[in-house]
Each structure stands twice: as structure tokens, then as C-alpha cells.
């Protein structure tokens, strides 16, 4: 059955990542932990953009909500990291819901600009309350505050395994979501909103739900990022961090479950490599965006799925 094949593929990827924990050299070990956390963010972005057709330019607001929701709690209120992580997830979801209530009255280009403006306002708010957030300079979270129960997140090995656990949960939930009846409705909304309305679905409700789930993912990623790597700064909530998940998703394949991870992995190493040979790594980002929309708008996995469409890989969720 297609379902089992897809599940096997995703479990295989997770097993491979677990194997890398024992095999990868220290430098890549840290990189992959970071990529897995960012891939959760990209998965969240993909749920809104890839599956529901909501092209947002303001997801940094939701990532930032998780980042600061968790970071400020442990830094100023000495909260437990576990509690902070949960708070971060909820902050992302709640903010996505609130933004969605307003932004989803618009569509297309207007939606992009509205989300961009909200994110910009959020970024500026972080700067404005610099006495708490320390603005661009950011907060360094002390080692003692980064304890997830008995797990020390500043330890490389623990951090990798925690990242993998969160990534695995996010990935499998993502898989379950897109294979669920609601996942089908999300795709229907992307494909033809008017048709879906005439099948009895309220476009606003469906999109709001999808955006909120997307916010929960983004919040989780932001909170985990801050707690694991011990840094919370305004730069991580800037417009670049709205573009980043879009880039990952476009590269890996919008509307595919593994696309965000694949895109994050490739883009991370591409920029990493570019930075080592030249200081023009921004050029790589820009060129990647242009080339992708021009020549491969479906991304890697999307193209594979379309090419093999008639028989072979159409089961790729």
C-alpha cells in the first residue's frame, strides 16, 4: 500500500538521522541538529504555503514568538525549559491565529504584504522593548537555564537527540495531517477555493486552522532554537527569517512532507560552502530564489513526484 511505503520512507529518514548521531563528525553533528530544528520551522511554513496555498512573508513573527516566548520566560522568570518550550509553541499558535483573523480577510499579494507588515511590526516591537530583549545584541541564555527536565541542552549529544525527537514528532504529525481528511481539505483550498466553498467548506476557517497549525510548528522551532543554542536575538525575527523557510520549502518541494527538511539541509550546506569560499553568501540565497521560481517552481521532491507522476512516486506525500 502507498501509505506503508510513505511511512517506511519517513521512518527510514529518521533512522538515518539517528545513525548520523553516532557517525557524524562533531562539526556536522551540530549542523544537523540545527538543520532539524530549522526544518520544523520550514515544515510549519509548508503547511501554510505548500499545502494550503498561503504565501506568507511574515513567518518570522511566529518563529520569533516561540523564540522570545521561551527565551524571555527562562531568562527573566527563571521558568523551566520544558515549560518555556510549551509556552513558545503556544505563543506561535496564538499569534498565528490572531494574525490570521485579520490577514485572512485578504488573499494573494495583499496577504503577503499584510503578513510582511505584521512581522515587521513584531520585529520593531522587539527592538522597542530593548530593555527586556536586548534588541539586536540579543540574550544569551545561561547553561543552567537550558535543562529540559534532566536533559542538558547545552550538551552536544543530548541536544542532537532532543532535536531529532522533536523533528520526528513534527515530521510524523505532518505526515498524519496531510493524509488526514483535513489535509485533503487544505489542499482543496489551495487548488480551488471557490470549488471548495461550494462543497460546503468555509475557506476562512480552513485557512485559519492551517495557519494556526503552521504557527504551532514555527513556535516550536523558535523555542527549541533559542533553548538549544542558547541565544535569542532580534535578528532571528527579522525579515530574513521569513524568507528562509520559504527558500527551504521552494528548494525541497512545496507540498511535500520531506521537502522542507531536504531544502533546509541542502540550503544550509550550500550557504555554508559558499561562505567558506567567498563572502558573497547572500548572493547564493538570492540566486537560489530566482533560479527556483524560474526553472523549478515545484522544488526537488515536487519535480520528482510530477515526473514520476503516472507511475512510481505519486505516493510521495
Amino acid at each position: 500500500m502507498n501509505g506503508t511505503r510513505a511511512l517506511a520512507l519517513h521512518l527510514g529518514v529518521l533512522a538515518l538521522l539517528l545513525a548520523l548521531h553516532f557517525l557524524a563528525p562533531s562539526y556536522h553533528h551540530t549542523n544537523i541538529a540545527r538543520i532539524m530544528v530549522l526544518a520544523i520551522y520550514a515544515m510549519g511554513y509548508n503547511i501554510a504555503f505548500g499545502y494550503t496555498g498561503l504565501l506568507s512573508l511574515g513567518h518570522a513573527l511566529l518563529f520569533g514568538a516561540g523564540l522570545y516566548g521561551a527565551g524571555l520566560l527562562v531568562y527573566h522568570a527563571d521558568a523551566h525549559a520544558t515549560l518555556a518550550l510549551i509556552a513558545g509553541v503556544l505563543a506561535g499558535g496564538a499569534l498565528a491565529f490572531a494574525v490570521g483573523l485579520l490577514a485572512l480577510r485578504t488573499a494573494g499579494v495583499a496577504f503577503m504584504i499584510v503578513t510582511l507588515m505584521f512581522a515587521q511590526a513584531g520585529y520593531l516591537t522587539i527592538l522597542y522593548f530593548g530593555s527586556y530583549t536586548r534588541g539586536d545584541e540579543g540574550i544569551v541564555i545561561p547553561r543552567a537555564a537550558r535543562m529540559l527536565g534532566s536533559l542538558d541542552l547545552s550538551d552536544d549529544g543530548t541536544r542532537y537527540l532532543v532535536a531529532l525527537t522533536l523533528f520526528a514528532i513534527a515530521l510524523l504529525c505532518n505526515l498524519a495531517l496531510v493524509r488526514s481528511p483535513f489535509g485533503r481539505v487544505m489542499v482543496a483550498m489551495r487548488e480551488n477555493e471557490e470549488r471548495s466553498r461550494m462543497l460546503g467548506y468555509n475557506p476562512f476557517t480552513v485557512k485559519l486552522a492551517a495557519l494556526t497549525v503552521s504557527g504551532l510548528y514555527s513556535g516550536l522551532s523558535g523555542a527549541a532554537y533559542g533553548l538549544m543554542f542558547g541565544y535569542v536575538g532580534a535578528g532571528l525575527a527579522s525579515v530574513q527569517y521569513s524568507i528562509l523557510p520559504m527558500l527551504y520549502v521552494l528548494l525541497g518541494g512545496a507540498g511535500t512532507v520531506l521537502g522542507p527538511f531536504l531544502g533546509a539541509l541542502l540550503m544550509f550546506y550550500l550557504i555554508d560552502y559558499a561562505s567558506s569560499v567567498t563572502d558573497a553568501h547572500q548572493f547564493v540565497t538570492g540566486a537560489a530564489l530566482v533560479l527556483l521560481v524560474l526553472f523549478a517552481p515545484k522544488g526537488i521532491l515536487g519535480t520528482i513526484r510530477a515526473r514520476a507522476g503516472a507511475r512510481g512516486a505519486e505516493w510521495l506525500p
Binding site: V109, M112, M246, G286, V293, P297
Partner: peptide
């Protein structure tokens, strides 16, 4: 891109990065 609105915005974001990088370099 046939001026398809969303693709165009993504492309001009890319252009923005490229031009800024060119100026920086």
C-alpha cells in the same frame, strides 16, 4: 514568469539579495 504575482514577488526578493550582495562586494 509571465508576471504571475506570487512568483514575481519571490523573484524580486531574490533580486534584492543579489543586488545587495553586489553592492556589498
Amino acid at each position: 514568469l509571465n508576471y504571475e504575482p506570487e512568483a514575481t514577488i519571490v523573484a524580486t526578493i531574490g533580486l534584492l539579495y543579489i543586488l545587495e550582495q553586489a553592492a556589498l562586494s
